[in-house]
Design a protein around this nucleic acid. Structure first.
Lengths: 193, 193
DNA sequence: ACACAAATCTTTACATTGTCAAGATGTGTT
DNA sequence: AACACATCTTGACAATGTAAAGATTTGTGT
């Protein structure tokens, strides 16, 4: 294996280059050929690794989602109890996208949100960040010994997610910075202030 | 003025044709040339009415937003009091986008959310649906004689909006239909079930 | 009614882009 | 060494956004 870039990890290089472009010029500035030339390969080289542009974008989204998940997991570390973890996760959820508005637009934009999920999966139930939120919430109920019906649980999870996601949406779609704070209460109220 | 299509209202025809394409093939299938040929004009004809593709898209978004506003306004008609109006509006907010998921993706997708707003305006404060929600909420406070600080009011408005918008987002981004119900309580809890 | 200016539309042209096909090059395996 | 395979390049093509130049229609003032 030569130590030249293109042997062994072009696939990952393309993903990284694509994400860099997103950061600099948004999804509008993303073209297969630019990504290729950023990696110093010919314009058709990506086709050895991705079926088409959609596939590249899918891999990029998966990669960004991984980074997002790392942050969410990180937010729950060193929290005294699960309630704090929930709150911290909500805060981080919004703050991540405030720091990376281009990621928000990229992930939740355009036609193919679910491109990086298997076709038999459904959003948001099999979307990792949602799953993490759900798990943490259920752990929280167990820890506090709170009994709720399945239906009620689903509703409150959607509530939590919708609040965080909706707020992130507002923050990312506006130029304005949105100050926020997140608290959860037992009976299912969600406060963002 | 001949009664041929292209004299007098090509501008509106282009907007309508564009929206029709969005409904059929999503934003991916939208090209200036297709819009032009749908109106039976040459591919460069749109440039007499729109500076570029972005401008057309902006006008299309404004048009879709108008339809959305009509529905929101309609939802508040014939409601006994402002609280009911608020609830009805929230329901309609989500239901509109459940019925028109392509509109959601179109409006809140891609790079240029704010394309159809003046540059000196800010999202969501000058986004008509948000303004309407805000006004209705303030009217509700007044009607119920509820006193709240400006800050608290802003928080709760954001809360309302984030819940509705986040839920619409979930519903539109997933293939799954999301059943929901919307209730507001005085102390700022938002329930969607 | 006429002339002229502005708006509107067409034609032509060009650069960018996604994708395909055919071939070259390198890698690993037997 | 030989062969299969993955990877990369080159060349081509159609779709697209956009600019330039010209044609056509519309409106306005005289």
């Amino acid at each position: 294996m030569s130590d030249h870039y293109h042997h062994g990890n072009l696939r990952q290089a393309l993903i990284d280059a694509g994400i860099k472009i997103i950061n600099e010029s948004g999804e509008a500035g993303l073209s297969l050929r630019k990504v290729a030339s950023a990696c110093e390969v010919s314009h058709a080289a990506p086709y050895a690794h991705f079926r088409d542009k959609e596939a590249l974008i899918g891999a990029m989204k998966a990669s960004v989602t991984d980074r997002f998940m790392e942050e969410l997991n990180d937010a729950t570390k060193d929290q005294p109890d699960t309630e704090c973890a929930l709150v911290a996760m909500g805060r981080r959820y919004v703050s991540f996208f405030i720091r990376h508005p281009d990621y928000f637009r990229f992930l939740f934009s355009s036609q193919n949100l679910i491109a990086h999920l298997q076709t038999d999966r459904q959003y948001p139930d099999d979307y990792p960040p949602f799953t993490l939120l759900k798990e943490t919430y259920l752990k929280y109920l167990k820890e506090k010994k709170i009994k709720k019906s399945k239906k009620e649980q689903e509703i409150e999870i959607l509530q939590l997610w919708a609040s965080a996601h909706g707020l992130a949406s507002i923050a990312c779609m506006s130029g304005v910075s949105v100050s926020f704070d997140w608290e959860t209460e037992i009976e299912g109220e969600v406060l963002l202030r």
